[in-house]
Structure formats: C-alpha cells, structure tokens
C-alpha cells in the first residue's frame, strides 16, 4: 500500500458516499444516471467475487463490502425508493453498446482464461467506460448540480491517483498490470473534459457546469 493508492481509495469512497447521501438527503435522484450506477454495481460484483475465495487484508475485505453495499443501495434508491424522481428521459445512453464490446474484449484480452480472471478483466474494462451514461446525461440536460460535480470530481480523481500508484509500484516493486493501466488511462481521460469544467467553473463560483 502507498499513499497514492490509499488516497485513491478514500477519494473513491468519498465519491460513493457523497452520491448516496445526496440522493438520501434530498430524497431525489434528479440528474443522476441510474444506468451508470447499475454499471458500477456490475463492476463491483464481477471484480469482488474473490471475496468468496481469498482473503487479502481486513482493509481490502472491508472496503469491498462497503463498495458493493453502497453501489446496490444507490441503485435501490434510484430505481425503487425514489423512482418517481428518476429522470429516465435524459438517461438514455445505450449501455449495451458498452457492455457487449467490453464483454467481448474481456474474452480476447486477459491475463488468464479462467472465469474469475475474465470477470475481473470485464470489470476493469467496464469501469473505464461506466461513467459515460452519466456524462452523456449531463451533456443532454446541459447542467449538473454542484454535489454531482463533486461526486464526479472524486470519482475521476481516484483512478488518476491509481495511475500514480502504478507508476510508484512499477518503480519500487517492479510490478505493473498493463490491462489495469490502459483501462485506467482511458477512464481518466474521459474525465479530463469534466475536470477542466469543474476547475474553471468552480473558480467562477457558478453552481452549475454546462458541458459543451
């Protein structure tokens, strides 16, 4: 464990908690893409199956359980409890255009052709594009609530910190995982446009960002 991975995990946890609390406290999921949240729940489910097969550390197990729990709680709030506030008309990204190619790629490019490894690879590839429905929805509505932009900021920051963690681990441990790195670079690039808006609009104090 290094400081970059730890702050990355805490940034990820912050994003997940910020979103869950926002929906719970405002009792509304307006402006939130339910599709992205379903994809994240799928990412955690397929990646953390090793909870059943191997124990790495208390931290590792605890965080995985928290991530999975919050992901499903968020999906529940969006599609069940606060269904009336779900903005289905703007959450129209065709997720099958993400899941099918990612599923195919996981079969073609992986470290080991075993079920657990293919599911892990699928989750790595899927995570890199899972935010697209949310970014698409924001571009359609033309605005995002401040709290949603904070959620996206921490979510984007977490994988950017992981990129530094992988540089650190390559340099100090001679360890690298090309699949995780390439997917992490793609994932972080997708946030660049948003990061630019978040920083520039954030300074001007306007409470809504309007992606082009």
């Amino acid at each position: 464990m290094n400081i970059f991975r730890l702050t990355g995990d805490l940034s990820h946890l912050a994003a997940i908690i910020i979103l869950l609390l926002k929906i719970w406290k405002t009792r509304s999921c307006a402006g939130i893409s339910g599709k992205s949240q379903v994809l994240f729940a799928l990412v955690f489910t397929t990646r953390y199956l090793d909870l059943l097969t191997s124990f790495i550390s208390l931290y590792n197990t605890t965080m995985k359980i928290i991530y999975i729990g919050c992901a499903y709680a968020t999906v529940y709030l969006i599609y069940m409890k606060f269904k009336a506030t779900y903005d289905g008309n703007h959450d129209t990204f065709r997720v099958e255009f993400l899941v099918v190619p990612v599923g195919g790629l996981a079969f073609l490019v992986n470290h080991d052709f075993s079920p657990l490894e293919i599911l892990w690879t699928f989750s790595i590839y899927l995570e890199s594009v899972a935010i697209l429905p949310q970014l698409f929805m924001i571009s359609k509505t033309g605005e995002a609530e401040t709290i949603t932009t904070h959620y996206l900021f921490f979510l984007g920051l977490y994988r950017a910190l992981y990129l530094i963690n992988w540089i650190w681990r390559f340099y100090f441990e001679g360890f690298f995982d090309m699949i995780a790195i390439v997917a992490g670079v793609v994932q972080t690039i997708l946030y660049c446009d948003f990061f630019y808006l978040y920083v520039t609009k954030g300074e001007s104090g306007s409470n809504k960002i309007n992606p082009a």
């Binding site: 995990d9 990820h12 191997s54 790495i56 550390s57 590792n60 965080m63 995985k64 690298f176 995982d177």
Partner: peptide
Amino acid sequence: GTANKTKDEL
C-alpha cells in the same frame, strides 16, 4: 505472475 499481484488492489 504480476496478474495475481493486481488483486491486492480494489
């Protein structure tokens, strides 16, 4: 191999 080592990450 290195793949197993990734699995200590979230």
